[in-house]
Nucleic acid binder design. Structure first.
Lengths: 262, 262
DNA sequence: CGGGAGGTTGACAATCGTCAATCAGAGTGG
DNA sequence: CCACTCTGATTGACGATTGTCAACCTCCCG
């Protein structure tokens, strides 16, 4: 750690601190990572599917999504990211991007060479483990999304998504869990949930009529009754692997097994 | 490497060698990992959702699945694993299992303490990187499954699954890519694809009528025309991150973008 | 030979998609 | 300040992919 480390990568430090106790040297080493900051406009691509990638990317502000396009042109969003998230470890270590990453809003990002990140990971096991855990939690969220899209109906599916955002925004320090600004259009929600925009619209309306959520101007969402919404969304925060206290909003639904399944 | 390393963990060495060039010391270190081998009977659980986990697990023979149960008892299978796969890095490093892992057939497994694995990973960066890449590829497969379940119709979805198995079995050295024994019942295929067993049955029949696959006694599947099946399944092997030559069976479907998507 | 798991098939229901029109709000330029 | 435009939200009518229910069949195994 020479002289004055830039504080640009601070959100990344914050994020990784969540998984491991980092000492001053660890933090310094992260802040000292070579990086290239950039302001990306709404709808800009961080990476495109199929590209060769050698840089990783941290989201410093704004929102981003990962998406895949299937035959026929339909889109599936496979993840949503917010401030501090390492949005491209996945692609960069594997060399070829198997999906695209796009920002939803004007966003500040910082590119970090994958090699530098790799070196840091193995020079400092504490940081390395934090990075690894970060990717493992991403994977856990992917699994939950498979279940969400595969085995829940539209109503449950959207309620689940709203619960996930609520908790993640709170953990990221971006707002209250029960009232937040959803950075997505209904079409984008549809692409997260494997539904159509029309059906999303109807389902949101239904959730509002049931008083599980309220909507005002723009895309603000207020959760009327967290417990009811979590129950409606079959939401159990275990998969987010939050620290004890932060999953507190959660309702645990005991897993009822369908009788007679091998 | 002391005396005679046991060869029990050989499938794990083979698997990790796929991602990094391991030297003799690396291989020796892996084989020397403390482990407890076990024969698990069909339908046995390696881990159950919600349990505390401190052991990782390697599949030495047989097949295993990861699954989640949603409200109402429906099951979603989120991954299928075969010989050599590290089936529980995901759960063990995170401490609490967010999903269950179950073997489909009688299988030999070996438990490895997560701590030992972690130590190995950071003592030997080459091995560490291989382990990390292994988890990143798992994550890539999860993403593809989200897209599969979210945005493809039943016909495409099942064709895609059959293609994935074909390639993975071949890479694992478990058979020819164009003819293999599917270790799953139709109900399990349904749980992989978010469909019902009845619909899976009809869809398989349709694939057979179209001569994309043949079925004989038991669950053997023969792929009639790989290119056609891959096209029908919108299958592009990029997401498996195989080495150049091994994705050769693949057909690349150029991503047609739906017009006018933000 | 009986039992059971899994595979097949038909009739019918429903969730969700498609198509298309209309509406509301934000930004832009004259 | 006010048309104009564009994106996104909303709604209705209708259609289809997929689910449900239930029966029956087939094979395997003790």
């Amino acid at each position: 750690m020479s002289s004055e480390p830039s504080l640009v990568l601070e959100p990344m430090v914050r994020r990784l601190s969540y998984w491991s106790k980092l000492n001053a040297d660890d933090r310094g080493a992260i802040l000292d990572l070579p990086h290239r900051a950039k302001l990306l406009e709404r709808h800009g691509y961080i990476v495109r599917e199929g590209e060769k990638v050698s840089q990783s990317c941290v989201l410093l502000s704004g929102y981003a999504i990962r998406q895949k396009i299937v035959a026929g042109g339909a889109r599936q969003i496979v993840a949503v990211h917010m401030k501090g998230d390492l949005v491209d470890l996945q692609n960069s270590f594997l060399g070829t991007a198997d999906h695209s990453v796009q920002v939803l809003t004007d966003s500040q990002i910082a590119y970090i060479p994958a090699e530098a990140l790799k070196k840091l990971a193995f020079d400092r096991p504490t940081v390395g483990m934090a990075l690894w855990l970060d990717t493992l939690v991403d994977a856990s969220v992917f699994r939950e999304w498979i279940a969400n899209v595969g085995r829940r109906d539209a109503h449950t599916r959207i309620a689940h998504l709203l619960c996930e955002f609520a908790l993640r925004l709170k953990v990221a320090g971006l707002g209250e869990a029960t009232e937040y600004e959803l950075p997505m259009t209904q079409e984008q929600i549809a692409d997260c949930t494997g539904l159509t925009p029309v059906h999303v619209n109807r389902t949101l309306k239904a959730l509002e009529v049931e008083k599980l959520i309220e909507r005002r101007s723009g895309r603000s969402v207020t959760i009327g009754d967290w417990r009811k919404l979590a129950a409606a969304g079959d939401f159990d925060s275990t998969y987010l692997h939050l620290h004890e206290n932060e999953g507190a909003l959660t309702v645990r639904t005991p897993g009822v097994r369908r009788p007679g399944r091998a």
